[in-house]
Design a protein around this nucleic acid. Structure first.
Lengths: 264, 264
DNA sequence: GAGTGGTCTAGACCACTGT
DNA sequence: CAGTGGTCTAGACCACTCC
């Protein structure tokens, strides 16, 4: 015999899935007092069912306003063939590079749908950062923070922190200036302006519960997982030239990775 | 002012992180009545703090026994260079293939540490399966279910469902027989025995909360995310020859994907 | 002010585990 | 059996939103 809260959660889940009247995306549920009475359970028990559905990302509660069926969020695909695509464009003319950016390609949206934000800062490398680059702790590093969101949504679907050795990019002062963002052609073009060719991209990631800070920044519920990804760019002489940490909302990100094998 | 349950959760979280006495992996916490009194809160409030920590995978409760600090689980790496490695071995001698299997390579464990289970079944393709292969619904398909676990853990760290067209493998009757498992050399060797060369591997995945069935099979808490991965093998004439769905426990899986770029 | 969800309490009863 | 966690209740009080 399943618990009452579990049964209620299942019923509501089914109604949302089937798009029952009053359970379509964006619609507001009746108050918890009313619904708890309808289901003949106490309010705390009913709330427990609601709690489950919140953690599944199906509904959202707003204090003082109500409980709402969540609109399925626009999924974002992330494909690893983007890296080759970006490399192919890195040496193209600026006009060519301006035509479409990597984000537009990923999401299928135009530049007008997107709101872009970048912050630059020079810091001393801590143990983690220094370890990735293989340099001494304290080496000067350029830290860049990026946020991208849709024009009509209030939370970013992409938050990333990128790190470069200041020494690497010193040859081109523009690379130290956040005002140049969004930079057409992306990081691989930036690296090309200082004579660096990227040989391969190494991405490592895990799924984990979001930290409190991440729930805020990405507008997700605690309990919905995030994909924490670290992307490392390695140049043709096997040096780490850039890496970035990206937090992706797990429930709206679809990763697509193709591994090409050599022929027999 | 943070909520009481949140403060308590933070305190316990910190004690586990610092390995405070009584908060080391595997140790049992005092009863909830005792601890609720210690923290000067009601039992339900204290339970709410426990609930948070369960969802973070830090502790586990067992009805009638107690609340336990969870041992960090053995992480499992999954690298995409495994595919090339497997391809290189696909045409090797059986003796060579027997030396190590793919799972042993991934986990760094020997065959003696692993318990392996396979079930075969011939089915008619439904819409999902037929869609991936690009064949009519109802085409005969070989469905293979695999489970792998460590000898000293009671839940598998890998559950996968693999699908092959019966027509594809009919040339080698051994491929229809579950008794031949574990098959040294894996799927790519099996395909080689019927004249198929794999050209590339396409993997798509998302992070999502586990279904009820998955929590049971993988021994994870509801609330801890899983990585749901679909791996598609495509042969040198661009046909889908096999695909498999794998559910990986998000909190113990580390994905490592390298994308090699062509040189300028 | 009326209505909403968020926090917290005190206690009942049940189901499971160990001895 | 005693002790544990799991479910459920009835109700108080608060914080927030909207009118």
């Amino acid at each position: 015999m399943a618990a009452k809260y579990d049964q209620i959660a299942s019923k509501i889940r089914a109604m949302i899935r089937d798009g029952a009247p009053g359970y379509t995306p964006g619609s507001r549920l009746e108050g918890e007092n009313k619904l708890a009475a309808d289901y003949k359970v106490s309010v705390p028990t009913f709330r427990r069912a609601i709690e489950m559905l919140k953690n599944e990302g199906l509904i959202d509660t707003e204090h003082g306003r109500g409980t709402f069926v969540r609109a399925p969020r626009r999924p974002v695909e992330r494909r690893n063939d983007r890296h080759q695509w970006e490399k192919d464009r890195a040496r193209a003319s600026e006009a060519e590079r301006l035509k479409t950016g990597a984000t537009e390609k990923d999401t299928g949206l135009t530049i007008n749908d997107l709101v872009f934000h970048a912050e630059y800062e020079e810091i001393d490398a801590g143990a983690d950062i220094a370890g990735v680059f293989g340099v001494p702790v304290g080496t000067r590093v350029l830290h860049r923070n990026y946020q991208t969101r849709h024009h009509d949504e209030d939370t970013p679907f992409n938050v990333s922190d990128s790190y470069l050795l200041v020494e690497t990019v010193a040859g081109n002062p523009d690379l130290l200036d956040a005002e140049q963002e969004p930079w057409p052609g992306g990081t691989q073009n930036q690296l090309w302006t200082v004579g660096i060719e990227v040989d391969r991209v190494e991405e490592t990631f895990t799924a984990r519960p979001p930290t409190a800070e991440e729930t805020e920044r990405l507008g997700i519920r605690p309990g919905v997982a995030v994909l924490a990804l670290r992307k490392v760019l390695i140049d043709t002489s096997d040096r780490v030239v850039e890496f970035s940490d990206v937090i992706l909302p797990g429930d709206r990100t679809k990763m697509i990775y193709t591994t090409q094998l050599t022929r027999w």
